[in-house]
Design a protein around this nucleic acid. Structure first.
Lengths: 230, 230
DNA sequence: TCAAAAGTGTTTATTGTACACCCATGG
DNA sequence: CCATGGGTGTACAATAAACACTTTTGA
């Protein structure tokens, strides 16, 4: 019969690192920051912070994201907890990675000017500090998984988008080419999009009809047993 | 330009909780322990422990499992990190859940007698302390996902098993009924099993042929682009 | 001899994949 | 008037699902 004493257990520093995904120019991007403190000052890094006593991890991740981008109510999900002994050379630190999906149209441009941060194409991520490259890899795998099984892709698009944008988004996330007719047929078979009267005239002379994701319709279908698969 | 000082950041207690899956009597089971210390003494709980300064989380999870079961080299995977402020009423504790897949044939029976632990059918899990029921739920979802995409099921079976056992295992994990002809045809199409000359005579008069999973064959196929899907 | 589990293929339905031409329009 | 991206449907292939009878043998 043991009387446990929590007091004698070791405590650790718990960090949060955010893999912030965005989509523009038909490519999937992530937002990186040039670290302005030691260790590893001057190198590219994920956006991070430490967990505070009075918040949970989801809140900490949202706080870290808001500090950098000004955005709240962003789709975020925990990826994994990283705990290698020497992952941070300064001190033993455990880090929980989160990914965030942000709509670049919402993202204040000023922040990009005020901070030493930059969007990188997911295929062109530089060498990052610590184990951050592994975090990006794991986050991307998780994003692929989520995007295949839940309509999370819309988090990365403007409210109104063309079918071509939607297709390019899935191509970027899944790193594959898709046939446009098959893609549209499949998506239409879900019956989750509303076709608007408006057209986007920016990418062609004919113009392309805009669509919006009908979240309410989606939830009703889910209740009736529908499950999104792409 | 900030000079970061890690020292002023809050530190936390980091726990590990293990969802230990086993399979017998054609049912998926989990191993639970009756807690013998406060808080929540006498209630059912996952097996847990605290992270030490000199180990990473995978090592801590393996240690916790070995302390209880005596088993090492067990398939384990991180599930999620739980951080609600008051999840442990005694003190602010963050917990990382791991699931483990153990082959009950390997599991020393003595441990079950020496410890206040018990196998519960996954469909009959009692009320657990803290957020442990949520952990079990998440672990089960992850296990379903893994079992559908990787041949992890064999971790739960003896080295030699019948096709019926394999089918019942998948039925238990996926919580669904499968047609035996379709199941066998599909599994055979993967060409991952070796049919042995031996029969298992314990479940019928006719006897059922035993099979084993050919891990080497599996790895060779994966290299050639094969991907397990069931 | 019969109860109980093992073993085995075919047909049909569903889903995925490949593929090419006309449309609308601004420059 | 033509270059550019938008929009549409059908045939074939692959995979999934439904389904029933014979075999073996210990009790």
């Amino acid at each position: 019969m043991v009387l446990n004493n929590y007091r004698k257990e070791d405590k650790v520093l718990l960090a949060i690192d955010c893999i912030i995904f965005g989509f523009y120019q038909e490519e999937l991007k992530i937002l990186l920051v040039e670290r302005d403190f030691e260790p590893a000052k001057g190198e590219w890094s994920l956006i991070g912070g430490f967990l505070k006593n009075k918040e949970n991890l989801d809140e900490a991740a949202a706080r870290v994201l808001k500090n950098l981008t000004g955005l709240s109510n962003v789709y975020m999900e925990q990826v994994h907890c990283y705990s290698k002994l020497d992952r941070d050379p300064a001190e033993r630190t455990i880090s929980v990675a989160y990914f965030a999906l942000i709509n670049i149209a919402h993202h204040c441009k000023e922040i990009l000017r005020e901070n030493p941060i930059k969007w990188f194409d997911i295929k062109d991520v530089p060498e990052l500090i610590f184990d951050h490259n592994a975090m990006v890899k794991d986050a991307l795998l998780l994003l692929r998984n989520r995007a295949s099984n839940k309509p999370v892709g819309f988090e990365l698009l403007p409210e109104k988008f063309t079918m071509r944008q939607l297709q390019k988004l899935y191509e970027a996330i899944l790193d594959t080419e898709l046939d446009k007719r098959n893609f549209i047929n499949k998506f239409n078979s879900f019956d989750l999009l509303n076709k608007l009267k408006e057209k986007d005239m920016s990418s062609s002379k004919k113009g392309a009809f805009l669509f919006e994701f009908d979240e309410e319709k989606y939830h009703k279908k889910v209740e009736k047993g529908f499950s999104f698969k792409i």
